[in-house]
């Protein structure tokens, strides 16, 4: 039994389709969703959402943390930034990783926002894992 999946960001609707199953990176550990799941609201950490349309192979979307709203026949993933793995630009992700690492290595400099740089590094690594 398939269900509806939507992945939305403030900038666009990244994905809308019918899928068979889904795995998401919950803050307290990853979880899977099949049709008929008990209604749930969960927060997600930076990681990848994996889903597969019936008969098709698995697809991945990297997200920068967010929320999942699970209803019996519909799941919505909310993320501030999200990208399908097939759209990830490897070069750009590598550049982002290098930039973040550079900023972190200069952490003596008080201008460097360590928390932000660490988050950026995590996002870049997460994108690179999918390509």
């Amino acid at each position: 039994m398939p269900f509806e999946l939507e992945i939305v960001t403030p900038e666009r609707r990244l994905y809308a389709g019918t899928v068979d199953r889904l795995r998401a990176p919950g803050t307290d550990g990853g979880f899977g969703v099949l049709t008929g799941h008990h209604p749930m609201v969960a927060s997600l950490k930076t990681g990848s959402v994996t889903f597969s349309e019936s008969g098709a192979s698995e697809r991945n979307a990297s997200i920068s943390g967010g929320f999942a709203e699970v209803l019996r026949d519909r799941v919505t993933i909310l993320a501030e930034t999200a990208e399908l793995s097939e759209d990830i630009d490897r070069d750009r992700a590598e550049q982002a990783r290098d930039r973040a690492q550079q900023r972190l290595s200069r952490r003596v400099n008080p201008d460097v926002d360590v928390v932000r740089a660490e988050a950026a590094l995590e996002r870049a690594l997460n994108r690179l894992r999918l390509v």
Binding site: P10, M40, V41, A42, S43, F67
Partner: peptide
């Protein structure tokens, strides 16, 4: 008005804490 109880994961308070900054961003 929900007919069903929602599962909150993690607990509602922590969920709220991570939700509000995103709400403000938006």
């Amino acid at each position: 008005d929900e007919s069903e109880e929602f599962i909150f994961e993690p607990d509602p308070r922590r969920l709220m804490d991570s939700l509000v900054p995103r709400h403000v961003n938006f």
